[in-house]
Amino acid sequence: MGYKIISPARVLIVALLWLPIVSLADSSTEPVCVHDDLMRLLCLDEPAEKIISLSPGLTELLFAAGAGERVVGTTSYSDYPEAAKDIPRIGSHNRIDMEAVLAAEPDLVVAWISGNPTEQLRRLEELGIDVFWGEQRSFEDVAHTLERFGRLAGSEDIAHPKAAHFKTEIAALKARYADAAPVRLFYQIWDDPLMTVNDEHLISRAAAVCGAKNIYGDLPRLTPRLDVESVLSKDPEAIVVAGMGEDDDSWLDPWRRFEGMTAVKRNNLYFIPPSSIQRATPRLLEGMKRLCAHMEQARERR
């Protein structure tokens, strides 16, 4: 006697009363934090609702990370995916319209370290806007950026599988061509002036995965300028060109007159749409698979 019987119903009521408080504490979450590519810790109180992207590649990465609907402003030439074309523009990647950025009242600006004007990014920070300074130079960077964008936008359930898929596919390509005979490749990214890439460039890394050896890999500059004679003297086994559009392979034509070149004799002249391999985004896989197929064909023509 004298015991106060605690009925199960009463326990339940007490528990239910506490529940909102507990769950409130849960959803008022700690801030989301990531390190950007300047290795600074960037923390948002909550996942960003309104994001501004400062390059076409970053826009693509945001869409891939499941944050596409949150992009409220981007730069000119943001043409992929289709939905990106309808996002309001806030200038070009090398001159940003500061007023347009401020007017969009973004929670987060994702920037491109080597492409955007540093002084404008600093100014945005001074005006109290959170800026993610990004730079993607390797496959790991692409995957890592996807994961971080997922975290910043609260779309990790989309971004993480995307990043994992990208890593597996790259690993698969690497495994497949690990023992392939090297193809001596000249990769032309511009025609006048004639420009190529060195081994630091993502394109050259992609080519290396396919078992291609960039004949200008050792040059010190990321995008060296060359003359035609130098290419002739190196006599590449295959030539891959970018172009001014998605299906403009006219840059191949000037090479055809050099009939003595191995690449011309074997007809190893290939075109790869620039946007599928020059942007550090998951679409890189598409361009790489194409490049690998071309290199495989060049081996068969030996």
């Binding site: 492409g115 004007p117 002084e119 995008t223």
Partner: peptide, 22 residues
Amino acid sequence: LSPSEQIPGMLYWLMGDMAYAR
């Protein structure tokens, strides 16, 4: 000899641009 991604910023400086004014 400059890396191509730095060229636009340099050209803007050479042409004169008030965005540099702090």
